[in-house]
Design a protein around this nucleic acid. Structure first.
Lengths: 123, 123
DNA sequence: TATACATATGAATGAGTACTCAAGTGTTCA
DNA sequence: TGAACACTTGAGTACTCATTCATATGTATA
């Protein structure tokens, strides 16, 4: 006979009911958390984090970034597109050159906060 | 004849040489940036960001998290393994139950800094 | 107008990864 | 001791995505 009944809820969550319920109520909206994950995902790529860091120092054109990071213009351009879509960077055109810069003063703050963590965990 | 010569360096980087060089010199070590990207990548997943947020409110067991996020224990356990490897979370055993908690006070700060950004960009 | 330059973009590919499933370990308790 | 429980783990799969390649767009310049 069908012995294996799928557990809907384990015993722990009943024992810890107060805590789990409290956390459940405090939990941010699903959408906020998805947006947040999306944001951090953008920071979570070596190329993009380098681009963001570089732009935090100075506005630069696609060409400069490609040279600085030793990558193709195409690769850089694709990443800049993502960063622009999420409004982490903005651009201005000057003739045939497109200069990119950070669109947000928070970018550097998020970057710095992460770096503090990384440096500490080294020890 | 071979007309197409691969451009090593575009004209822009020569024109902008001072800026590019300055940024190049200031650039953090490759390893630091890779570690940083790795850190943010951990934050850049819906499941993991929810886990981190939940643990910032209270220590919880695997079972509680699975119930809270409506996911399988296995999925949660796999993610906790990654978070533990990177020392973002730690655990303690109490009988057969394993309680997880944040291993670092920076986690919440990084989370909050990101949330500020997300909330602002909504407008 | 033709050419070079700066950038953008679409398709293809290869690498990485989140989850599922099945099986395992370790603990408690009847 | 054995059954239930909490959790872990390895393999497999479906999916995402960063880069490359080829091509397209737009601008300046000779």
């Amino acid at each position: 006979m069908g012995k294996k009944i799928e557990k809907i809820r384990c015993d722990c969550t009943v024992i810890h009911e107060d805590i789990v319920n409290k956390v459940k109520i405090l939990m941010p909206e699903e959408d906020s958390l998805l947006d947040l994950a999306e944001l951090f995902k953008l920071f979570g790529d070596p190329t993009r984090i380098k681009i963001l860091w570089a732009l935090s120092e100075s506005e630069m054109c696609v060409c400069d970034l490609a040279f600085l990071l030793n990558m193709t213009q195409s690769a850089i351009s694709h990443q800049l597109r993502l960063l622009k879509q999420s409004r982490l960077v903005k651009n201005r055109k000057e003739g045939k050159v497109v200069f990119y810069s950070l669109d947000d003063e928070h970018v550097k703050r998020i970057f710095d906060q992460g770096m503090i963590h990384v440096k500490e965990k080294l020890m």
